[in-house]
Amino acid sequence: MRTLLKYGGVAALVVLLSCPVLHAQNYLNVTVGYGVNFPTGAFKNYITHPGYKGFNASLAYPLNDQLSLGLSFGYNDYYQKYPRQTYNDGEGTTVSAVLTNSVQQIPVLVTANYTLIKKGFIRPYVEGGAGVNFATFDQYLGEFDAPHSKANWALKGGAGFYIPLSSYSPTAIKIGGSYNYAPFNSDGVKNLDTWGIEAGIRFAIH
């Protein structure tokens, strides 16, 4: 809980510090999207199935025609059920159970996005982010749950392209991929790293 408060406080501070800058500009870019994320690294020891419930949103301030800075939020749900099998602890205890792993991640990141080409039908971009990942990991043996929740720092790197819908506004379709580095370090679960593909739409609010 203390960790959650600590990282939650850091995230709130980032938002507050961003406000004066945001208020000084004409508009903000809002992006909402859907993504499919694939567990990788140590995370695959627990869940190999892709997470099809991935949603994200971001609020970004354009510093110039190519670079923007903002906050991004996400929600990703992962689930996998393993058939019944026995687990031995090597000290005389055996458990037979259907094992289910359920993981939810809510990354809150400060994100920078750089568009490589300013004009054209397709405008490639690269982006990076750093912040906090709020994660819950529930492991069920049968119907019995052993829950773990933790907030930890996280990094994101991604690339893709925008397809503008108009020459005169920032409205565009965003298609891209990303790698999400998310340490967890709780009860033997080292990380919840994923890579993902996403599609969304970007528009401006004044």
Partner: peptide, 28 residues
């Protein structure tokens, strides 16, 4: 919309049969 979809966590308990819900533990 994001919040609504975000709350759509797949509930493991709703995806278990009665047989799958049971665990067997032995110790010797």
């Amino acid at each position: 919309t994001i919040l609504a979809f975000g709350s759509c966590r797949k509930d493991p308990l709703n995806n278990l049969t009665n047989d799958e819900s049971r665990i067997y533990i032995t110790n010797y």
